[in-house]
Design a binder for these strands. Structure first.
Lengths: 257, 257
DNA sequence: TCAAAAGTGTTCTCCCTACACCCATGG
DNA sequence: CCATGGGTGTAGGGAGAACACTTTTGA
């Protein structure tokens, strides 16, 4: 719906400009976009959702055609209640992924005067954390692709920089946010949780210490498995204890690593 | 310079609109502003720099005339290299305070569709920390006023909300940033430093534990006073040991409170 | 003279860290 | 059968938290 509107606007640009003086201001305005950094985790690696630019837009008005980029697009001045709504709407349009507005956390504003060759464009970057297993089917493989964090291609515009900043924000927020909740599937193992923290924080932890600390927080509860474990080779499955987590959080807690 | 340009644009709005079709886009663009939250500390209380709106602009085009607000203003699409440059430029124009672009830390974007009654305006809030004693003389008392944090009046637009968010960002960043360096005058006392941390974190510390911890970091050095202290009633003066602080910081340290 | 402000040191506890062995599975 | 992956417990050290008394000055 929104896509077709954007397409029309772009396609009609030439005669619009000549015949209608559509939107006029007494001093220059920048264009404003929202970009999305969607992080996913498959139990092994941290991943990011990227799109290939220009597949379906008029190439003459689209920069960086054929390059990989972060999903995102222009603020709808009349309809988007906030810039986070822009992020959610554009993500849906470009990748099929439907997230709630409050799943987006603001990363920051990128406003370098020449960051877009077409006109002055200011972008507000947002990141979101998703359970990869649960959303993979919902992402439109025609347009979007999940890239391993360690294997990201060069991106269009200043999106390389935006991605780096988004990752460092995630790295900071991991101390205050329930990152595990949001990235892991509902049932997970301790090694998976540890690997996730190690991926984001870019450090290695001692297995025993990590397990001790996690147990100490009392936010994990064992999932009783149908198949009784014989050895220790197959890891124990856990799920988050949301009640305990919420109680900790409301007391102003902080995950320390 | 920029002020006169803005004034002209505003004053000429009516006939500009009619005679010139100045800046036209094929789809609507929002206006973009930068707002500044300047925190200062006088050794007793945390303060914020506010301006009174509309004293010198055409009232018919200015919203919230006569109310207090955060300093800030519109992005100059052609000249401001980044939105932080907007913040620095507008702060200078509106309050006389001249800060470097890198003194501003981004707080976030405020984009509610109705936050400005005139047109869609998105603002990027920035905070800055200044040594109140050193800049007080430089702020234009005609236009701007320093308000104690505990005594802030109701503000125009959504600036109340912006201020709250800025303060909570400051509260977070205090764990990673040398807030003392930036807010305290060069020479200060331990009680002042403690009071500053208590003001920002909204907690009380035990005097002895606070002193122990600070000494342990080895980032304070005593300033030998000309007048030898008789009793303990007059506090010892310190300055920051920048070398030690930088060394700690480069090793990835974190102030814990 | 009394209240308020500032300096100082010790003990206890808890959490973080370092560290090694066993078991089961799959190749 | 051996390499890999996963589970588990303990001892030591360091840092945070709790805690009281003395001195001086200003009211």
């Amino acid at each position: 719906m929104q896509i077709s509107l954007a397409l029309t606007t772009f396609a009609e640009k030439k005669w619009n400009m000549a015949t209608k003086g559509q939107y006029t201001y007494e001093y220059p305005h920048p264009a404003v976009t929202a970009d999305c950094i969607v992080f996913g985790y498959d139990g092994k690696e941290l991943k990011v959702l990227l799109i290939k630019r220009g597949k379906e837009k008029d190439a003459s008005t689209t920069a960086y055609v054929g390059e990989w980029a972060l999903p995102g697009g222009f603020l709808d001045v009349e309809k988007d209640k906030t810039i986070a709504h822009t992020a959610a709407r554009e993500l849906k349009e470009e990748t099929g992924l439907k997230l709630s507005v409050k799943d987006f956390k603001e990363v920051g504003t990128f406003s370098d005067i020449n960051r877009d060759p077409r006109e002055r464009v200011i972008t507000v970057a947002h990141y979101a954390l998703v359970k990869l297993a649960e959303v993979k089917a919902a992402t439109d493989a025609e347009k979007a692709e999940w890239y391993s964090w360690k294997d990201i291609p060069h991106l269009a515009f200043d999106h390389d920089k935006i991605l780096r900043v988004a990752f460092s924000k995630l790295k900071q927020n991991i101390h205050f946010e329930p990152v595990g909740f949001e990235l892991l599937s509902e049932v997970f193992t301790l090694p998976q949780l540890q690997n996730l923290y190690e991926s984001i924080l870019e450090v290695k932890f001692d297995r025993r210490n990590f397990a001790n600390k996690m147990k100490h927080y009392e936010i994990l509860s064992e999932v009783e498995d149908d198949t009784p474990r014989h050895g220790t080779r197959t890891p124990i499955k856990y799920r988050f204890d949301k009640d305990n987590y919420d109680r900790l959080k409301s007391n102003g807690f902080q995950l320390e690593f």
